[in-house]
Design a protein around this nucleic acid. Structure first.
Length: 463
RNA sequence: GGACCCGUAGUGUAGCCUGGUUUAACACGCUUCCCUGUCACGGAAGAGAUCGUGGGUUCAAAUCCCAUCGGGUCCGCCA
């Protein structure tokens, strides 16, 4: 006899089936005992005799064989999907006992100390709300993949062991054993790889890309690692990128979240300057009712300045040049503004685009530079030293071999999912999130390593 | 790097401001017993907390002070 999942039990009326799962609630009435059996699909009520089930405790893993019966009319429970039936248990087997859980997995769990929830994340994930969130995340990613495949995009994995380059955030570094004193860096984004894939001729690329940045956490920003929907296309204009993204997200919301209402389609497009003038923000919240969880107000921000004045913290750009890229150093200036680069570069605008949802920046991108001369000019304007330019020599070398005009975007998946699910904290949408200070409280990582490991890496720890 | 908030049985809270009728309370959970229709079952009894840690003030500290540890939020940071 094959095992059946709880939700399917309802199909097997008057038949013998076997079900497995966790004993979620046990209600003893002396001679008769009811058990709510939870599995991946939901809850099924088991009806057991006392001698069969009196030892069973909550969260034990059990297997039950019996016959599926209709419940008496008065006993139907409309609150659960299998509420019309129940399993009259003939054989009950304990597969695994369980200690009393350190916290309740009923309810939404927001009130429980998060440190405990993260330490016992595998138990917290038994909670209905988190199961629902991860299933929704799965559906969202599945939808994105299917949508982009239909649009002839190709999904390509780019390396995780990569090179540290002077970009925005702090890198996570990986020491190389075979090359002592040298380090890999985990990618802050697959930016260079995806542009080189365009150069290689793939034309339409995407990836559910893990990205790593060694920066502090926020409620809507996970520390350490996050996933972005990385997209790049060749032979396109900015409009094409905006339209693709907009159509994808609109279709996604309509299909998976039909109860939500997108405030305006097509998404409003605001210039950076007009947004700053009108809302004093480059990520304005355009919702009518900020308390309505079903309102989604997307908008685009475009016409960003290509440069901003360099702040003291921009230590990786050349000193004294006073310019830092607003977006990144591969973003193309607007065609009509190229002539400004020599005399008044701060006035030049770029083909950068940010996607904003309910006051949160959920993605950014641009048309990239595909002209080697302009790329070199940008490097000069931000004051790159010879040494800094050398870190991009592979990139500049590649640009001598025929570069298609290209551009893309990279929406942050965790952030987008957080808003769709109405969660306040991004950790509620991630299976095994790091804590605010970038530690894994369940695995207890990062951790110390052995002397032998350090010796192999030729690393000495000075404290 | 900075600011603010939190820490009391397994979980969530009350008590703290105004130190002493506190034998630290309540809800949920847990243990044992009763119960054949419950579904977050119900009923009875019981166990479980040196109040994050260290120091100080005091006749007396969960309560006041200092330090420290842990967690969270925000600013900086996040091309």
């Amino acid at each position: 006899m094959n095992r059946t999942i709880n939700i399917e039990a309802i199909k097997y009326l008057d038949k013998q089936i076997k079900v497995c799962g966790w004993a979620q609630a046990i209600r003893s009435h002396g001679k008769i005992i009811f058990i709510d059996l939870r599995d991946m699909s939901g809850i099924l009520q088991l009806v057991c005799s006392s001698d069969m089930a009196k030892e069973i405790r909550p969260e034990w893993v059990i297997e039950a064989i019996g016959e599926i019966n209709n419940r008496p009319a008065k006993m139907v429970n409309p609150k659960i999907a299998t509420g019309k039936v129940e399993l009259a248990v003939k054989e009950l087997k304990v597969l695994s006992k369980a200690k009393t859980l350190p916290f309740s997995i009923e309810g939404d769990g927001y009130e429980i100390n998060e440190e405990k929830r993260l330490k016992y994340r595998y138990l917290d994930l038994r909670r209905e709300r988190l199961k629902k969130n991860l299933k929704a995340r799965n559906e969202i990613i599945r939808f994105i993949r299917e949508y982009l495949r239909k649009e002839n995009f190709i999904e390509i994995q780019t390396p995780l062991l990569s090179k540290s380059t002077p970009e925005g955030a702090r890198d996570y570094l990986i020491p190389s054993r075979l090359h002592p004193g040298k380090f890999f860096a985990l990618p802050q984004s697959p930016q260079q790889y995806k542009q080189l894939l365009m150069l290689a001729g793939f034309e339409k690329y995407f990836q559910i890309a893990p990205c790593f940045r060694d920066e502090a956490a926020r409620a809507d920003r996970s520390p350490g690692e996050f996933y972005q929907l990385d997209i790049e296309m060749s032979f396109v204009e900015q409009d094409d990128i905006l339209n693709l993204t907009e159509n994808l997200f609109t279709a996604l919301v309509k299909t998976l979240f039909p109860e939500k209402r997108i405030k305006k389609i097509p998404f409003p497009r605001l210039s950076y300057q007009s947004a700053m003038d009108k809302y004093n923000s480059d990520k304005p919240d355009l919702r009518n009712d900020k308390n309505n969880p079903d309102e989604l107000a997307f908008c685009w921000l475009i016409d960003f300045p290509l440069f901003q004045k360099q702040s003291k913290e921009d230590f990786f750009y050349g000193a004294g040049k006073k310019l830092a890229p607003s977006h990144h150093m591969f973003t193309a200036p607007k065609k009509e503004d190229i002539k400004m680069l020599d005399k008044e570069p701060l006035k030049a605008k770029s083909y950068q685009h940010d996607l904003v949802l309910n006051g949160v920046e959920i993605g950014g991108g641009s048309i990239r530079i595909h002209d080697l001369k302009i790329q070199e000019k940008i490097f000069d304007l931000i004051g790159f030293s010879k040494k800094q330019k050398e870190q991009f020599s592979h990139f500049l070398a590649a640009f001598q071999y025929g570069v298609p005009p290209h551009g893309g975007i990279a929406p942050g998946l965790d952030r987008f999912i957080r808003i769709l699910l109405g969660e306040n904290n991004i950790r509620e949408t991630i299976a095994f999130p790091l804590s605010g200070d970038a530690r894994d409280l369940m695995m207890d990582a990062p951790s110390e390593v052995s002397e032998e490991q350090l010796k192999e890496l030729k690393i000495k720890i000075k404290v």
